[in-house]
């Protein structure tokens, strides 16, 4: 329960953090610490250097830029929950954040750390897929933007390049005819998902113009259930179609068995969470 020895460095700016990542071998960024520190305490991770990015003001805050909401990577779960901008323009993120962990973790855990960490149990990666988010990344070579779709490559593996920092997450504001839904099954407060599913639906009248169904903790990383989406896209969604889509969700799952359940249970739960989210999103999209 005690980490091995490490050196602590405080970064003063994004540039400084990038420089420090370059200067110290095998250094890790320290955000909220609620994924990194437990791993260090169990000595699963033994980084010799931690670069603390908590003091960097430019990484915090939520602002509206036209049809896009820009969220600083160091924004905590609790700040997401209490953000009026999000409550009004992106209910999915608020709902998802409320279901992350427990109050203590939500006080410190950040959305950037949640996305960057690469744990398939984290909620925000799937949420970012469903929202079709864009990430702003700063590295030694400058700034680049990368779509959430394609960013998550495996367990503890994503498209973050060497010495790169996730600076901002950009999501579209919800519009008329668009609906959000998030369902997550967990054993208890403070637990990761047995299965979770964020869904975003865009309606054209009654017809589903577009839909994104993402899944949490039922594959090595957050995934989209594209076969399920294809069943619903372009259709007037009814119960029978939802059942067909749920069957596709089930087939898309590739979870690891653990105490939360075996492959069968987790896959069925993912299907059920998707069902629930589709219904909730439909309801919201229909206004």
């Amino acid at each position: 329960m005690i980490p091995s020895e490490f050196e602590y460095h405080k970064a003063t700016s994004i540039q400084d953090a990038i420089a420090q990542l370059g200067a110290h071998e095998d250094a890790k960024l320290l955000a909220g610490g609620h994924s990194l520190l437990p791993m260090m305490k169990l000595r699963f991770a033994e980084p010799p250097h931690l670069i603390d990015i908590n003091g960097i003001e430019e990484l915090r805050g939520i602002r509206l830029e036209g049809d896009t909401i820009c969220i600083g990577a160091m924004t905590t779960e609790n700040e997401l929950i209490h953000s009026e901008i999000l409550q009004q323009h992106c209910p999915l993120l608020v709902e998802a954040a409320r279901l992350v962990a427990d109050p203590q973790v939500r006080n410190r855990g950040t959305i950037g750390g949640d996305v960057a960490h690469g744990d398939p149990g984290n909620d925000h990666p799937a949420v970012m897929l469903a929202l079709d988010a864009t990430f702003v990344l700063h590295g030694p070579g400058g700034e680049r933007q990368q779509a959430a779709n394609g960013f998550f490559l495996g367990t503890y593996w994503n498209d973050l390049q060497e010495h790169e920092i996730l600076v901002e997450l950009r999501v579209p504001v919800i519009k008329k005819g668009v609906g959000h839904g998030y369902s997550k099954l967990k054993r208890k407060t403070g637990d990761y998902a047995v299965a979770g599913s964020p869904v975003v639906i865009e309606l054209d009248g009654e017809v589903c113009r577009d839909i994104r169904i993402a899944l949490t903790n039922v594959a090595p990383m957050a995934i989209r259930a594209e076969a399920a989406e294809n069943i619903l896209r372009g259709k007037v969604i009814d119960d029978a179609l939802i059942e067909q889509a749920a069957a596709e969700v089930l087939a898309a799952c590739d979870p690891a068995e653990d105490l939360r359940g075996d492959v069968l249970y987790k896959s069925h739960m993912a299907a059920e969470m998707a069902r629930r989210s589709i219904r909730a999103a439909l309801l919201q999209a229909r206004g």
Partner: peptide, 16 residues
């Protein structure tokens, strides 16, 4: 032993 942390071992909070 597969479940020796409070992540797995069930100690209910007032939510449950």
């Amino acid at each position: 032993l597969l479940g020796n942390t409070l992540m797995d071992y069930f100690v209910p909070t007032f939510v449950e």
